[in-house]
């Protein structure tokens, strides 16, 4: 049974491979940093010459150069707010149900499956659904209301998930203390659990808003590629082209002589808005962490 155990020496190759792979991993990671910087840099650089007050406050042109993006900015904000207004109650309700009422069994697993499926459904598929139901069957045509309702479908799974996760993170002792005082389940959820989870839900909400703001496939087929000639136009029945749709439309349509510049400027505006939102989330996050420490 006495086996000649070889002398285990660390081979040169194993050392070299280790060095090499450490280098490779650093290189891959730094590549993504570089890609992001390059990306944001290029978009801002292209858009910078176009960005001025006139661009942001003028109405768009249909055939001539020099148009602005005023109604598209309005429509983007309006549609994000409307779609969040629709999806927030549904998402909150479903999230609360999953965290507090669904138990741990089959029902919860099935609900999770549905939420995940909805979250993974391509936006172009949601667009088709919105087109069939709201645009055609309801006869609402390409309009703010068709767009807002379909966009809400994109938000619902995200809000549901973030609500569920935030509620599950509420310490058990807090809930038990509330029950111990004789609070009903609803009171415990509304007055103890939700306020505790509010910051988490709020962060998720800002991220959802960012996603809705950037969405285009859904809105091309439900809110349309035209903006109202009035400003501001709060009517739900008129088409409502957003910034992202405008960016896509001027690029692929090609009737505007300055389509390139308009697209570059619009992209820069969108990047700036998203950077701001991201910073906002980070600040909120830091404030929360400082408070809970």
């Amino acid at each position: 049974m006495n086996v000649a155990v070889p002398v285990f020496r660390r081979s040169r190759t194993s050392k070299v491979v280790d060095r090499l792979m450490r280098g490779v991993l650093w290189a891959i990671a730094l590549t993504f940093v570089a890609v992001l910087i390059l990306f944001v840099g290029a978009i801002l650089k292209q858009g910078w010459p176009v960005l001025n007050l006139g661009f942001l406050t003028k109405m768009p042109e249909t055939l001539d150069a020099g148009g602005g993006i005023k109604p598209q900015i309005f429509n983007s904000i309006y549609l994000v707010v409307l779609s969040l207004g629709i999806s927030l109650p549904v998402g909150l309700g479903a999230g609360i149900y999953m965290a507090a009422y669904a138990g741990q069994g089959r029902a919860l697993r099935f609900l999770r499956l549905c939420i995940e499926t909805l979250a993974a459904t391509p936006s172009i598929v949601l667009a088709l659904f919105g087109m069939i139901v709201f645009v055609q069957a309801m006869g609402w045509s390409f309009s703010i209301r068709s767009g807002a309702l379909t966009l809400a479908l994109l938000n619902i799974p995200v809000i549901t998930r973030v609500t569920e996760v935030s509620l599950l993170a509420v310490p058990r002792e807090l809930k038990e203390a509330s029950y111990g005082l004789g609070a009903t389940k609803l009171q415990t959820i509304l007055k103890v659990a939700l306020p505790y989870a509010a910051t988490g839900i709020l962060t998720g909400l800002v991220l959802t808003a960012g996603r809705a703001f950037g969405e285009s496939a859904i809105l091309v087929f439900t809110a349309g590629t035209n903006a109202s000639a009035q400003f501001p136009d709060f009517r739900l029945t008129v088409p409502g082209e957003t910034l992202s749709v405008h960016l896509w439309y001027v690029t692929s349509d090609g009737t505007l002589p300055d389509a390139r510049e308009i697209a570059a400027g619009t992209a820069a505006v969108m990047i700036l808005v998203l950077l701001t939102l991201n910073l906002l989330v980070r600040l909120v996050d830091r404030a929360i962490r400082r408070r809970t420490r």
């Binding site: 155990v5 285990f8 660390r10 081979s11 190759t13 194993s14």
Partner: peptide
């Protein structure tokens, strides 16, 4: 696992080390 880390590939040697 350990012997493999140090480049032992021969099956018979490995079998011997494992049994030992």
């Amino acid at each position: 696992f350990g012997p493999r880390l140090f480049g032992v590939k021969d099956r018979a040697t490995l079998d011997g080390i494992v049994e030992d």
